[in-house]
């Protein structure tokens, strides 16, 4: 990938579950002029750690800035760009479609083809739920549009790498820059003169 090629990237960030963390992340996106297409955040498998998936478009260099700036936030524990990895990516949408006795059957067929489900029915509308990759959600929405979409909500994409967990929180905390490895602060730094006892959180620095 060259520096000028724009591509969609899927990035996962593990965050400490603390007040204002989301504010820090979105504030960073806005002041660094990063354009984010979707963002979801929720609990991870580890207590006190939230997991955020976001999708952003840009060149490799743009995205490197997004990742390194985000990683500098104190409450951000780990970042993984999973764009190049085999990944399960899903988005959920709830779509309220106008129906009548003529169209209901056709719509139900579409729901079935898309492995979506109907979660609410009344005389004039249906609520359809779909959990699928983004392009399938787009495609269903396009088809349903002809019947009249009254309301819609999409969650944004969530992602998980396939296979054994290389990106779980417990494996992810030790990431440092690719060409550096960490050594404990030996106190020679003028700014770290009394920082010895705090190295309990130092890590071996190998990329997980």
């Amino acid at each position: 990938m060259t520096d000028t090629q724009t591509q969609q990237h899927t990035i996962i960030a593990w965050l400490e579950d603390k007040p204002s963390v989301l504010n820090r992340v979105t504030g960073l996106f806005s002041r660094r002029n990063f354009n984010i297409e979707s963002l979801t955040v929720g609990h991870s498998e580890a207590k006190g750690i939230s997991r955020m998936t976001f999708v952003a478009s840009g060149t490799e260099r743009d995205l490197q800035q997004v990742e390194t700036q985000l990683d500098k936030l104190i409450n951000v524990i780990h970042i993984a760009n999973v764009t190049q990895e085999p990944t399960v990516i899903r988005e959920m949408a709830l779509i309220k479609v106008t129906t009548n006795s003529q169209t209901r059957g056709e719509i139900m067929q579409l729901v079935s083809i898309y492995h979506a489900s109907v979660v609410d029915v009344d005389m004039t509308s249906l609520i359809i739920q779909i959990v699928a990759p983004e392009d399938r959600v787009d495609s269903l929405i396009q088809l349903l549009d002809q019947y009249g979409i009254e309301e819609m909500v999409r969650t944004g994409q969530v992602a998980m790498v396939r296979g054994s967990s290389r990106h779980g929180h417990s494996h992810g905390v030790a990431t440092v820059a690719a060409n550096g490895h960490a050594t404990p602060d030996n106190g020679q730094n003028a700014n770290g003169a009394n920082g010895h006892t705090e190295n309990a959180n130092g890590v071996n620095g190998a990329r997980a």
Binding site: E16, A182, T183, N199, N201
Partner: peptide
């Protein structure tokens, strides 16, 4: 406190990679 618990902050003095 004598220690800090900041899992997302790793301000170690970084040694450069020998290859670099």
């Amino acid at each position: 406190p004598t220690t800090v618990n900041l899992p997302g902050y790793r301000p170690n003095r970084l040694t450069p990679d020998p290859d670099v």
